[in-house]
Simulated scan of single mutants.
Amino acid sequence: MSDDVLAMYVKAANKHDFSLAITLNVNGALVTGTTISAQSYFKKVSENFQDGNDVAQSLSEQLQGASESAAKSSDEEANFIHLEEAQVYCGDSNPTPSKGKFLWRGKLSEVEGFFLGTIAKDK
């Protein structure tokens, strides 16, 4: 079972490209980032495979199809949350990944809690 408020944020991201800085508590870890739509998530992931071999290009095409499908089904129940610029914190250690911009996808039903805003990165 997922949190109705969190599901509302995800539906806003999926339907209206609403982005929100958020930190999620997932199985004892903190996952921090900015919400993006499922369509945007699949499109960005597909771009990672475009210049690869035949298998990578096939994956890219399938992910692009998932992006188009997600755009058409934005009114449906939200089951996953998608974040960009994501980092995962476990305890007091440095985040994973520590550098770069990463996408993250997780089940809403696995989120135990959340707060608005991201964890500040040490500079």
Rank of each mutant, 00 (worst) to 15 (best):
Q39P: 00
A7D: 09
S2D: 04
Y41G: 02
E77N: 09
V111R: 02
D75K: 08
Q39H: 06
Q87H: 13
K11S: 10
L24A: 05
D75Y: 12
A12N: 13
Q87A: 15
G33R: 03
L83C: 09
D4S: 13
S73W: 13
T32W: 10
N25Y: 10
I22Q: 07
A78N: 05
A21F: 04
G117R: 10
W104Q: 00
S109Y: 08
V45W: 12
A66P: 03
E112N: 07
E85N: 12
A7C: 11
Q50C: 10
S73E: 15
D92G: 11
G106W: 05
E47K: 12
F80Q: 00
A21Y: 07
V111M: 03
E112T: 06
D122I: 06
T35P: 02
M8G: 01
S40M: 05
Q50D: 15
A70L: 09
L20S: 01
S93V: 02
V5C: 08
N25K: 07
K101V: 09
S74N: 14
G100H: 13
E85Y: 04
I119L: 03
A66K: 07
F49P: 02
D3M: 03
D3K: 04
A7Y: 10
S40W: 07
M1L: 08
Y9K: 07
G28T: 07
G33C: 08
L20W: 08
H16I: 04
A13C: 13
V88N: 04
A66T: 01
E47W: 06
K72H: 12
V26W: 05
N94V: 01
E84R: 12
K99A: 04
E84V: 09
P95C: 11
Y41R: 05
G28E: 14
G28D: 14
R105W: 00
E84G: 01
S69Y: 13
L103H: 09
A86T: 00
E47I: 02
G28M: 12
T118P: 12
K101C: 04
G117M: 10
F49Q: 00
R105V: 03
L59T: 02
S60V: 05
V5S: 09
